[in-house]
Amino acid sequence: MQTASGLSWSLSRLTADALEASVDDLGTLLHACVLAGASVGFVLPFPPEAAAAFWRTKVLPGVARGGTVLLVAREAGRLVGTVQLDADTPANQPHRAEVRKLLVHPDARRRGLARTLMAAIEAEARALGRSLLTLDTRTGDAAEPLYASMGYSTAGVIPGYCLDVDRTHLDATTVMYKGI
């Protein structure tokens, strides 16, 4: 149990069965984050069914194979955050993993949960024998200084990398890495 500002949350690693049982909650979280402008691979309109389908079709197979670690945070039983570690790397990269989809519900932000999830996923990576983590984030997002404050270095910026959530312009992405 982690605490911040008098509030508490519990972190857990989901198995494939637990992920299947939590698809609706995970979909609700993803949907809320995208509606709040998160650049995590989706554009508006983004129906709740598409959010749930993402977890079933894109994340569940990796968790079932053991190549993806999925952590979730719950506060008073409600799923308020998640992060993934993709450790399904090629044979010449057994030391590396990619951090994906750090999501914190909009009404649970600014209380240290993202930092807690990142520290926990780094611990999972170390337990798997990984010594290098990579990630990317929309350039200028609030997550970028968070990652930098946790020791991630910028490898570079790719301009025009993706559409923004509203499909009005292209956003750059910042690629970051950290030795752990």
Rank of each mutant, 00 (worst) to 15 (best):
L133G: 05
P47N: 10
T15Y: 03
R96G: 06
A143R: 01
A76Q: 11
R100C: 13
Y161M: 09
D171I: 06
R56T: 12
W9Q: 01
A64G: 06
L60A: 12
P45N: 07
L103D: 06
P48Y: 05
Q84F: 01
L85E: 06
T57V: 13
Y147S: 04
V59Y: 02
K101R: 15
A21M: 07
G27F: 05
G160P: 10
C33S: 09
Y161H: 13
M176K: 06
W55L: 01
A148S: 12
D86K: 01
T68K: 00
P145M: 09
A53W: 15
Q93R: 14
T57D: 12
C162P: 09
A52T: 12
A120I: 00
L135K: 01
P45M: 04
R115H: 02
V34W: 02
T139F: 07
A119D: 10
A143T: 05
T174M: 08
I121M: 05
A16G: 12
L29V: 00
M176R: 08
V23D: 03
V165W: 03
D107R: 14
G160D: 15
A97L: 06
H105N: 08
L103F: 07
Y177C: 11
R138N: 14
C33F: 08
W55I: 04
V80R: 13
D164W: 03
L70S: 05
D141V: 06
A53M: 13
L85A: 06
T134V: 15
H169W: 10
E98V: 09
R111M: 13
A125Y: 02
V80Q: 06
P45W: 00
G156F: 10
L30M: 11
S149L: 13
E124F: 02
S131Q: 14
M150G: 02
R74F: 03
Y152G: 02
T57K: 15
A53P: 01
S12N: 11
M176T: 12
L133T: 01
E49Y: 05
A4K: 04
A142G: 15
C33N: 06
G27I: 02
M118V: 05
A108C: 11
R78M: 08
T28R: 15
A125P: 00
R138Y: 11
